[in-house]
Computed example of a mutant assay.
Amino acid sequence: MKLTLIGAGPGDPDLITLKGIKALQKARVVLYDSLAHPSLLDYCPEDCVKILVGKRFGKTSCGQDEINDLIVEKARQYGEVVRLKGGDSFIFGRGYEEILFAAEHGIESEVIPGISSSYAVPALAGIPLTSRGVSESFWVITGTTKQHELSKDVRLAAQSTATVVILMGLHKLQEIVAIYSELGKTDESISIIQNGTLEEQKVVTGKIGNIVPLSQVSEMASPAIIVIGKVAALPDLSYDKVRGMMQNSQSVTAD
């Protein structure tokens, strides 16, 4: 019996790995999360059993215990089971918990890493997590711990000069702002990226001191990633932005 854990990547279905695609093409049963792009299931054989197990803030089709039980049940029934998870299974994806549970029931596991949204989403929004002379390191922190609280590491990270990336933290935005404000960092740059890497991606950038009203006016919603630090204020030089600037420049020249 075997469990294959596949990281589906940050959202855009083109960002899954080739190895992940090959595993889906052979799958007999797939347990997939809400954050895995639905078109990825098209790689599966026609007779593959596909089961949505949810996992999105505020919306859970299955609890983790139920998912664990399904892994064992389907592995025993089909001899193998594929678990398709958003981002990378080992970065706030509870992937290790699932392979541990599988191992306790005599099921071997294979892990196929995925591109994590923690760095891919900022990158495709034109935000580098590190940049020479601007940021030398970065933190990646969960916005919601097992106790449904904001991680205490946010306060530690806020005291550093590093870029801080917070996943699953939009509903804790006011708490995050309060921590930075207490440290006198109301002028620190911050970006919120909603639906990163997808066509409906939306980005709002401001300062700690004004990001709450900006996010409300922009109607930002989950899934979203928060990036805090000087890099959030760098000019967006992503392909679409540069192409737009070039087109505008050519229009002005023509006039």
Score class of each variant (00 low, 15 high):
residue 1 M to W: 00
residue 2 K to C: 06
residue 2 K to V: 08
residue 3 L to P: 09
residue 4 T to K: 04
residue 10 P to I: 01
residue 10 P to T: 04
residue 10 P to Y: 07
residue 16 I to N: 08
residue 18 L to T: 11
residue 20 G to R: 00
residue 20 G to C: 05
residue 20 G to T: 04
residue 23 A to E: 12
residue 24 L to E: 08
residue 25 Q to I: 05
residue 26 K to T: 12
residue 28 R to D: 07
residue 37 H to M: 01
residue 41 L to F: 04
residue 46 E to V: 14
residue 48 C to A: 15
residue 50 K to E: 07
residue 52 L to P: 15
residue 54 G to K: 07
residue 56 R to W: 08
residue 59 K to Q: 14
residue 63 G to C: 08
residue 64 Q to V: 05
residue 65 D to F: 13
residue 65 D to Y: 09
residue 67 I to Y: 06
residue 68 N to C: 13
residue 68 N to R: 13
residue 69 D to R: 12
residue 69 D to G: 12
residue 69 D to T: 03
residue 72 V to R: 09
residue 73 E to I: 01
residue 74 K to I: 05
residue 79 G to T: 00
residue 80 E to K: 02
residue 82 V to Y: 05
residue 83 R to T: 01
residue 84 L to C: 00
residue 85 K to F: 02
residue 88 D to R: 04
residue 90 F to N: 11
residue 90 F to H: 03
residue 93 G to E: 02
residue 93 G to N: 00
residue 94 R to Y: 01
residue 95 G to I: 01
residue 96 Y to F: 07
residue 97 E to R: 04
residue 97 E to I: 02
residue 98 E to H: 04
residue 99 I to V: 13
residue 103 A to W: 02
residue 103 A to G: 11
residue 104 E to G: 05
residue 110 E to F: 01
residue 110 E to A: 09
residue 111 V to T: 04
residue 112 I to D: 09
residue 112 I to L: 05
residue 113 P to H: 10
residue 114 G to H: 06
residue 115 I to K: 01
residue 115 I to C: 05
residue 116 S to E: 04
residue 116 S to H: 01
residue 119 Y to V: 14
residue 120 A to K: 06
residue 123 A to V: 10
residue 131 S to F: 14
residue 133 G to K: 00
residue 136 E to S: 14
residue 138 F to I: 09
residue 140 V to E: 15
residue 141 I to P: 13
residue 144 T to D: 15
residue 145 T to D: 12
residue 147 Q to V: 08
residue 148 H to R: 13
residue 148 H to L: 12
residue 148 H to I: 06
residue 151 S to A: 10
residue 153 D to I: 05
residue 159 Q to Y: 02
residue 160 S to A: 07
residue 161 T to C: 13
residue 161 T to F: 08
residue 162 A to T: 07
residue 163 T to K: 00
residue 163 T to Q: 00
residue 164 V to I: 15
residue 170 L to Y: 01
residue 170 L to N: 01
residue 182 E to S: 10
residue 185 K to M: 12
residue 186 T to L: 04
residue 189 S to L: 13
residue 190 I to W: 02
residue 191 S to D: 09
residue 193 I to R: 00
residue 196 G to T: 08
residue 198 L to P: 08
residue 199 E to Q: 12
residue 200 E to M: 09
residue 202 K to Q: 14
residue 202 K to P: 14
residue 203 V to Y: 00
residue 206 G to T: 05
residue 207 K to H: 05
residue 208 I to D: 15
residue 208 I to N: 14
residue 213 P to T: 10
residue 213 P to M: 06
residue 214 L to S: 12
residue 218 S to F: 06
residue 218 S to I: 00
residue 220 M to R: 10
residue 225 I to G: 09
residue 227 V to N: 02
residue 230 K to C: 05
residue 233 A to Y: 02
residue 233 A to M: 09
residue 237 L to Q: 11
residue 238 S to C: 06
residue 239 Y to F: 15
residue 241 K to M: 11
residue 242 V to W: 07
residue 242 V to R: 09
residue 244 G to T: 08
residue 247 Q to N: 10
residue 249 S to F: 11
residue 249 S to V: 13
residue 252 V to I: 07
residue 253 T to H: 11
residue 254 A to L: 13
